[in-house]
Every structure is written in structure tokens, then in C-alpha cells.
Nucleic acid binder design. Structure first.
Lengths: 337, 337
DNA sequence: CTGAAAGCGCTTACAG
DNA sequence: CTGAAAGCGCTTACAG
């Protein structure tokens, strides 16, 4: 900047003004300074700028796992929200590693970013409190952190279960199966409640809750094996699987035996619509967790907090309603079938 | 830091030393300072640090499209490389938008990151030159940028085509089809050459090159339609599709007619092994582009350049050999078939 | 082992 | 409209 000023024959204050408040500088001077900047290939030192102003033009986002498309969707949404106000979104991928998540939190804290978006996998109260105690705006995505003093964006998982089960009922299924692991994970519990509500609301529909060990493809296969061994009238004709992976495991397992057809004999719905799970034998109908909407809502909450004077901000929790993406796995059976 | 120094009854220089060179400070003093830091919740201001030292502890990575798992793989690899030397990886997602790509390049430049990893979609010479003229280390991934003055990591696309075709030949296929769009994209051209080489090397194998308009699922469907209409001896028994999407389109199209079986009548190989393309009716055998290996190699080249005195560094190009992931779409037909 | 002081490159009132 | 000067929060030789 020194060099630019010298080259253009002005003071460094003027150079700074040309960059930041061009309206305060005469056209002629502006021209000279711009020419000097171009000639010298000058790039403003952001560290110095942010030291002097105490602000940054970027916000940080720490994601639990980029391999999971839900988080990529969140990044898209947040990006859009940030773009709208000219902020840049920097992403740190924790890759399921809590230590790394903490590293990124610290990095963003030290870098004095304008704010942080965090989508954690596990309890992260310590990191959150550290951030908050430094007065840094922060919003949580897709995780209900008890005790956390910040805004949160959640998807309504109870509604997700409800929507999935409703869809089956509305397409004529009457014996609903809910396949899930234990209620240790918050979303599992919530989706179960939603399914139960949908069944309760509807006359003439039964619910069977089928337990699994885990939440993966293998668990779905095991369930399929069980189902295939039952008499036709002793098994569900519609299944809500708590994860896409389980859903695909079920579809694959049934497909392999070829004794039971999907969707002919059993319709299957997943609860996530995750791109990384699109490997099943039938395209999977799934509840859409609206990652992009979550990301955008989170960015908006963050921006709101960033521009609100400290002390006046009131935390909010935004609940996103899930959608439904209908595909082949719940197609209505042909009339004569 | 002022506050910490006052609180601990030492000078700020000592605080700085405790943080950065603890060995230069007596144990007792260190203890007091640490206590003060903990008590006050002090966080080093990274902007000031980087202004004073002229260095940063992070490197930037600009990715063309996080929705494409190849780029996520690259991020994983780069992360690993950066972790190994204690650098943090900051990700910017261009999301297929060249303007945004340029924004991130500028952001990282202004932030004076230690170096930048760029995986572009299109010619990005201007941005690269700007970066280089500021002396910032930079390495390119998965793109041959003519005129670019920096290290590059590429996957060997000629080899990818070769590996795919070899696999078909080795599993007994003798009439190979190569399905691709025009050679406008560098990788398409290279993969074609590889397929041709594999066929040329092998006796008794024919090659048919089938053109498509684009590189997507629809294009594959169209090819399937054509194929299904041919007599059995007039169509290939093994197909290399230049993209996974085309491959899945072909498999889906053939599956729908059910006149031609995959892999029974025709085996299909894709050339990318992209997770977002895993929606076909048969699990797809595909050449694996080794995104993680590319990312790691790129990080290593970057770190090498970062620690080499300016002027002494010599740019290199690293070529990664693709692998092969065998799945159902190229299973050998049962003997009696 | 510890402290006083200069400097990193910018921004921002404040004079002129 | 433009410039001189202080200050942002740290680091780093250099004395002591």
C-alpha cells in the first residue's frame, strides 16, 4: 500500500479511501490510484485490515461429514444466505472427527470470523460455550444441544416420520412397519413418534415396530431376510425405514429373494433422501430433510445476530418442515395385482 | 494479551513467549500466564499474529463442485496431507460458478494463506496468474491448464480408458463399445485413446465407438434404446461408458426393455466411480479416479513449495494411476448362458 | 529468564 | 478532497 501510494503520488490514507470509500476521493485521484494498484498487482492484506477494523468479511462453517450429502446441502444453503449479503463462506470438514471439529472451531475463533455455523454429530457443548464466551455469533444446525446458548435450526423429525407413514397410508397400505434401531439418537426417537401419530390418526391401519441393531445397509438386509420368511398376511405391506441405508438394505434383501416384490408387495420409504444411499435396486421414496433450507435459515439467523447490538439479540429456534420425494419404491401396485 | 499480561504481572512479550516458545520461559511464569489465559478466556488474534509474522497456519482449497464426490475425495486427501504437518484446510465451494471460484481465490489471496489448492472446471489462467504473481504457492488438481506456472496433479485418463477396456477383455468380452460425447473435454479424448490402445493390443477384439450428444444419464438411455433394437450379433457385449451417468443410463435403459441383460448380454463399465451416480439398476463397475490420492499428492506438492525458498522451487506434474472397482455390472455370465 | 520498543499493513477520526 | 498520526494485537530481535 506504501508502494501504491508512492507510485500514485498520494498518501496511503488516500489509497485506503479509494478502496473503501471511493466517493470521498476525486475522480482523477481515484484513477491514478487504480492504475497504480493494477500496475503493481497490489492485494489488500486482509490480516491488517481485519486487525484495524476488527471485522472480517467471512463466516465459518464446520460440517460433521462432507461425505454425507445432507451436509453438502447445508453448505449450499448457507452459501446462498451468505452470498446475499456479500459474505464469504469458509468450510471446515470435521470428517466425523471431534478433535478436528474442535480445531476448526478454534481456527475460526482465532481468525475472528464474523460468525460460525456448526453442524455437529455429538455433544459439543464445550466448544460452543468457548465460542459464545468470546462473544462470537454462532448457530447450530440439525442438532439439539441442551444447554447451548445460541440459535438453532432443526428439521422436524417427528414430522418426517409422520410424512413417511402418511404417504404409505395414502397410497393404500394398511399394515405399516417401522424399522429402526434404538431411540438413542434423537432423530430415531422423533421419527418413531411421528410414525405412531400417523397410524393412530388413521382408522384400520396397524403398526409393527421392527428393531435393528444399527442403522446401516446390513441391518436392512437382516430385516428383509426375516420378512421374506413370513407368510404374506403376517408381514407389513408398507415400511418406513428410519434411514435410507436401512431402506435400501430391505429393498435389496427382498429383491435378492425375489419372493417379495418392492413396491408390489411391500412399499418402502426412507427418512433422509441421502444421495450417498442411492444404490438400491429400486429408486427409493424418501422424506427430504431439506438440508439447503436448513443451511439458508442458519445463515440468516447468524447474519441477524451479527448485526444486532450485543445484548439485544434473542436466540431463536427454527424448525424446518421436511418434504417428500416420491420414487419407485412406493409406487401403487397395478390394480389387478 | 495486554489484559493477560497485566493479570499475570508480566509483559506481553512474555505472554507471547509462553504461547509460542514455552521453552524460553521459566516454569513458574509459564504457570501464571497459563492461569491468566484460562481465567480470561483469551484467544490469540490470528489477524495480528499473521500480520506480525507474515505467515498463516492454513491453506485454502477451492473446489469446483462439492456435489460431485470426486471433489469431496480430493478434500479428504488434501486434509490428510495438511494434517500431517499441522496445517488447517479451509474449503471454498465454487459450486460450478466461475465468479465464485474467483471470489475464493481472491479471498485466500487477501487472507495470505500459506498456499492454495485449486480444482477448476474451466480455463482459469487469469486467476492462477494473479495468484502466482503475488508469489503465492498454488497447485492445480485434475485439470491441465496450459500456460499455468505451477505444480499439477492429474489422473491418467488414458490409463482409465485402458483399464476399463482391459477389464472387459479379461472377463471374456470381445466386442467392445466405447460410448462418449465429442472430444471437447480433455478427459473424454484421453479415455478414448486408452480404450483404443487396449483393443489394439488384444487380438480378436473389435471396437465400436458410439457417439452421444452429452455426458449424462439421458444420453445413456438413448444409447440403450439403439442397442436394444439391434440383433444380438450386431451389438457390443461389453461397453466402456466415458461417464458413470452414461453407464447408468445404458444399464437402466436396457433393464427397462428387459430384452438385453446387464451384465449377462452386455457388461458395462463407468469411468469415474462417482457416488452421486449410484442410482442404476445394477451396481456399476467403474474406474476409480483416486480423488483422495490426488488431494494428498497436491497437498504434498504445495507443502514442498511452501517450504522451498522462492526461486529454488521447480514445478512438477504428478500423474495418478486410476484403479478399478469391480461390481455387478461386469460379472462374468454363468457358464451355461 | 524477562521487558521495552519497533514494526507488520491497514483504517479512521481529525486537521488542513 | 487529501494527508499526518495514532492505533488495531501480536512477534521478535535486542538489551538488561
Amino acid at each position: 500500500m506504501q508502494d501504491v501510494a508512492r507510485f500514485a503520488g498520494v498518501s496511503i490514507a488516500t489509497v485506503s479511501n479509494v478502496i473503501n470509500r471511493p466517493e470521498k476521493v476525486s475522480a482523477a485521484t481515484t484513477e491514478q490510484v487504480r492504475a497504480a494498484i493494477a500496475e503493481l498487482g497490489f492485494v489488500r492484506n486482509d490480516a491488517a485490515r481485519s486487525l484495524a477494523t476488527g471485522t472480517t468479511s467471512s463466516i465459518g462453517m464446520v460440517l460433521a461429514d462432507l461425505d454425507n450429502s445432507l451436509f453438502v446441502d447445508m453448505a449450499h444453503g448457507a452459501q446462498q444466505g451468505a452470498d446475499a449479503v456479500g459474505l464469504r463462506l469458509l468450510i471446515g470438514n470435521a470428517a466425523c472427527d471431534m478433535t478436528r471439529q474442535d480445531d476448526y472451531l478454534r481456527l475460526f475463533d482465532e481468525a475472528r470470523v464474523g460468525g460460525v455455523l456448526l453442524s455437529p454429530m455429538e455433544d459439543s457443548l464445550a466448544g460452543i460455550e468457548r465460542m459464545r464466551s468470546h462473544g462470537r455469533p454462532m448457530v447450530l444446525l440439525n442438532f439439539e444441544q441442551s444447554g447451548a446458548d445460541c440459535c438453532t435450526v432443526l428439521v422436524d423429525n417427528e414430522e418426517a416420520g409422520y410424512v413417511a407413514a402418511r404417504h404409505l397410508v395414502e397410497t393404500g397400505r394398511t399394515r405399516i412397519g417401522f424399522v429402526a434401531g434404538r431411540d438413542y439418537y434423537q432423530p430415531v426417537h422423533a421419527r418413531r413418534l411421528g410414525v405412531q401419530r400417523a397410524v393412530r390418526e388413521t382408522g384400520g391401519v396397524e403398526l409393527e415396530e421392527i428393531g435393528t441393531d444399527g442403522l446401516g445397509f446390513e441391518d436392512g438386509l437382516a430385516v428383509a431376510h426375516d420378512l421374506a420368511g413370513r407368510a404374506a398376511d403376517r408381514r407389513p405391506d408398507g415400511i418406513v425405514a428410519v434411514t435410507d441405508e436401512i431402506a435400501n438394505g430391505i429393498a435389496e434383501g427382498l429383491h435378492a429373494t425375489s419372493a417379495v416384490q418392492v413396491p408390489g408387495d411391500i412399499a418402502v420409504v426412507g427418512c433422509e433422501d441421502n444421495r450417498s444411499a442411492r444404490s438400491g435396486p429400486v429408486a427409493l421414496t424418501a422424506v427430504q430433510l431439506e438440508g439447503a433450507a436448513m443451511g439458508q435459515a442458519a445463515a440468516e439467523l447468524l447474519l441477524e445476530e451479527m448485526k444486532t447490538p450485543a445484548g439485544e439479540h434473542r436466540h431463536r429456534t427454527v424448525m424446518i418442515r421436511p418434504g417428500l420425494v416420491v420414487r419407485a419404491s412406493t409406487a401403487v401396485p397395478a390394480p389387478q395385482a
